[in-house]
Simulated assay, not measured.
Amino acid sequence: MDKEQPLLEHLTELRRRIFWVLGVLVVGVVIGLIFAKRVILFLKSVPPADKIAWHVFSPWDALRLYMNFGMVVALLITLPVALYHIWAFVSPGLEKAEQRASILYIPGAVVLFLAGLAFGYFVVFPMAFFFTTAISHSMGITELYGAAQYFSFMFNIILPLSALFELPIVVMFLTKLRILNPLRLAKMRRYAYMVLVILSTVITPPDAISAILVSVPMILLYEFSVFLSRIIYRKQLVQDAAWEAEYGDQEEPDEQSEQAVK
């Protein structure tokens, strides 16, 4: 019974935090729906949407457009709250120094998500839009854009990029949990590059320049993640050495560990 009680307490706490996140998500959707019209009209007034006419092809398109914006705004509002509750749930198992360090992941994750949104909207989305438009013109096709389809096309580009920009935070967190380390990331570099190039090719127009413009920042983001992992791993080695010196036989770090901290 004593062993079951902590598990029940953890499950109760997890359920409470999930309810908090879902509640914030609902509030975010409401806020998004309130401001959706203003945001849509603003985006309609800036390139590339300012030069095209929007249409709806079914009575549900306008409602779907509102709901899409409501969900995106709710995602932006819920992200820091969800990250905080994840941190609060796992923080009792961390030391005080680790708690202070890990809570800094929350603003970092939000900033990186917004950076991904900006990169997707201002760089990748215009390239993809103008590329598809150029194909239509070359075939003598007159574009007739649906408002809901236009924004679905935009969200399908910028939201995956925003998720990819969370890579440094994910790598730092997994390194902190000792699941990843810079040695393992270095061995995975070749495959990571290949995956990032493939993803860049999928979400961009099928030409070399667009793929390069997206894949290069993705690769730099991966290398930045390796750099951050190396910093955390170096501190872990120092802490392990201090613990060994105080509580056990001090062992010399192996050759791989020495290479990782260089």
Rank of each mutant, 00 (worst) to 15 (best):
G116S: 09
L76K: 05
V124Q: 02
P48T: 11
P80F: 05
N156M: 10
M127L: 12
D249G: 04
R16T: 06
G28K: 07
A245E: 15
P107K: 13
V261M: 11
V202D: 07
I18M: 09
V123M: 09
F42Q: 13
L14E: 09
A242K: 14
L104H: 13
F129A: 09
H137R: 08
N181Q: 10
A186V: 02
L196I: 03
A208P: 01
L75G: 15
F89C: 00
I198A: 15
I179N: 11
S215T: 06
A118H: 02
S257H: 08
R17I: 00
L177R: 10
E95K: 10
S162Y: 02
A192F: 04
W87N: 05
L79R: 08
I209M: 14
K3N: 08
I157E: 06
W54D: 14
V202G: 11
D240Q: 13
F122S: 07
N156F: 11
A242D: 15
I198Y: 12
V39H: 04
Y233H: 11
T201K: 04
E255I: 09
M218V: 01
E251S: 14
A115V: 12
F227P: 01
D61A: 01
G28Q: 13
F42H: 14
S162R: 02
F155N: 01
E9H: 07
I198P: 09
